[in-house]
Write a protein that binds this DNA or RNA. Structure first.
Length: 541
DNA sequence: CTAGGGTTAG
């Protein structure tokens, strides 16, 4: 997405009518630029009443019509009628617009908005609502387009509209674009308010160097004579927590209280989260106490975060106690707390304890999500056989497994060098496993797998459509040369190759010839010449 | 009428 596109829209929109993607009434002509300018330039109170040509239309009746249009499956049919009758005011249409948005009816919303634009039934609120919902429907491009097609500079600098555009960008991970647009908006006359800054601040949570960017915004806000509010503090705390600014989080928390804002559960949660990064359990406990004393009840997130603090701090006794508490409260229905604890234990080198957590967990909750997660954690904690046992448990439980799980377990088995199990997984799921994973498996198997199964592996991976490369053949053949008692297997492999279109390359052939006394010179020579003939025959075609 | 936030976890 290019910011320059936004710039061109400023001028473009002055000469071209706004585009409509779903023209509802082909005959309806787009409003002239001058009409639209007049309307959009009108002071807010005028905009509200501009269209009420039938001011006598009773409020209840309008409310009914709004309901009817919202509910009607063929609602666009009613629009021409509504226009002629002047039944609905702009604010009524805005209500419908918001209803569509609330119900995630993005197409309906888009159609209605286009119609409103074409029929001059539009206000600042229509724009800000519409843009907001474009952000929710993950369509920031469309929002930007709507914004850039606004013909009037004054409307374009309206703080509600600007805030909704910026929010839409931030929400969709376009922080950089939102920052650039913000500067442009200011140049074009926007006077930002607390909400503008708060919106941008939220973008700092998931962004690189978010903390320093957040500080810049806060500084600018203060320079403009604005004051931080409770929402902004909450966002700022979240920024601190996600940027490991523990002390700063603490100081903002106190500052916020000093300024008379009382923290809610989210403020506490963010600060606690900041503590968890450093495993400062004393402060964390103190904070939870403080929270309780204000009458706030620690919820699932608070308790789980506290668990994280204990785990990070290596306090496994306390962790286990808290886990029991979480269970008792019904806060442990997902695998997260177990995984947290297992993970911490494993990192601390306490694998046995981690395994016992796993065993307990297995007894309590057994769902796909959990198993998948457990497999992941067990793999990570080098408990590869346990990971595989969860996998087989799932498989024989006749559960529908997600495709990715097979490949996931394959990687785990490979890193645990459980090659025989890996072979079974590949064999049973060839079509679900990527070429890259097959290659990784094949290489590992040729290097260290059971020599008696090398040929079977070759056949299986070939059968899966994988093109076996020379490196792999060389690895296999080297294994056989190191183990001359397996000469039958070598001969079998060499005989199998030409039938599938494979032939050894010259370096491998030399390797075999050099060691041919181990396998029978005559036989080897015959097989190799057959391979060469095949290979030549293939090339000549 | 309309615009802003947030917590755990790969």
């Amino acid at each position: 997405m290019e910011l320059s596109a936004i710039g061109t829209g400023f001028n473009y929109a002055l000469t071209c009518p706004a585009q409509s993607y779903f023209p509802l009434i082909p005959s309806a002509s787009a409003p002239t630029t001058t009409t639209r300018k007049r309307i959009l330039n009108a002071p807010p109170q005028l905009q509200q009443h501009h269209f009420s040509k039938n001011p006598g239309m009773n409020r209840n009746h309008r409310r009914q019509v709004v309901k009817g249009v919202t509910r009607s499956p063929t609602w666009p049919d009613k629009l021409p009628f509504l226009k002629l009758e002047g039944t609905l005011k702009v604010q009524d249409l805005n209500v419908i617009l918001r209803n569509f948005g609330k119900q995630s009816r993005w197409n309906d919303l888009s159609q209605l908005f286009d119609w409103m634009q074409q029929n001059d039934k539009i206000s600042v609120a229509s724009f800000s609502s519409c843009i907001k919902f474009m952000g929710k429907s993950l369509n920031p491009m469309r929002a930007l387009e709507i914004y850039s097609n606004i013909p009037d500079e004054a409307i374009k600098s309206n703080v509600f509209i600007c805030n909704s555009v910026l929010s839409c960008l931030v929400r969709n991970g376009k922080f950089d674009i939102s920052t650039k647009l913000f500067h442009k908006m200011k140049q074009n006359g926007l006077t930002p308010d607390v909400i503008t800054y708060s919106t941008l601040l939220a973008g700092c949570i998931k962004v690189k160097h978010g903390y320093s960017k957040a500080l810049d915004l806060v500084q600018e806000l203060k320079y403009n004579g604005l004051q931080m509010d409770s929402v902004m503090y909450g966002t700022l705390l979240a920024v601190c927590a996600s940027n490991n600014q523990c002390e700063e989080a603490e100081s903002y928390f106190n500052q916020m209280k000093d300024e008379g804002h009382s923290p809610n559960i989210f403020h506490y949660s963010s600060l606690l989260n900041a503590y968890s990064a450093v495993g400062n359990y004393r402060k964390a406990e103190e904070l939870v106490q403080d929270m309780k004393s204000l009458g706030l009840v620690p919820n699932k997130v608070i308790r789980t975060t506290l668990l994280k603090v204990y785990v990070r701090g290596g306090l496994f006794e306390k962790s286990r106690e808290l886990l029991l508490e979480l269970e008792a409260l019904g806060y442990a229905e997902d695998e997260m707390p177990y995984c947290l604890l297992m993970d911490g234990l494993a990192k601390a080198g306490n694998i046995n304890e981690a395994r016992s957590i796993f065993d307990e967990t297995k007894e309590k909750v057994l769902n796909l999500e959990l198993c998948s997660s457990l497999i992941f954690y067990l793999g990570k904690t080098k408990a590869h056989p346990e990971a595989f046992s969860v996998y087989t448990m799932l498989k024989y439980g006749k559960r529908t497994m997600c495709k990715a799980l097979h490949e996931k377990i394959l990687h785990i088995l490979l890193s645990g060098q459980l090659l025989k199990d890996a072979y079974v997984v590949v064999k049973d799921n060839t079509e679900l496993i990527s070429q890259a994973a097959i290659k990784k498996f094949a290489n590992a198997f040729m290097k260290l797998g059971n020599i008696n199964m090398i040929n079977d592996v070759m056949k299986v991976i070939h059968g899966s459509g994988y093109k076996i490369d020379q490196e792999l053949f060389q690895m296999a053949i080297s294994r056989y040369i190191e183990n001359p008692e397996k000469k039958d297997l070598l001969l079998q492999l060499l005989k199998w190759m030409p039938g599938q279109g494979y032939a050894v390359d010259s370096s491998t052939r030399n390797l075999i010839l050099k060691n041919s006394h181990l396998f029978g010179r005559q036989l080897i020579a015959e097989i190799l010449s057959r391979q060469q003939m095949m290979s030549k025959a293939l090339k000549s075609h």
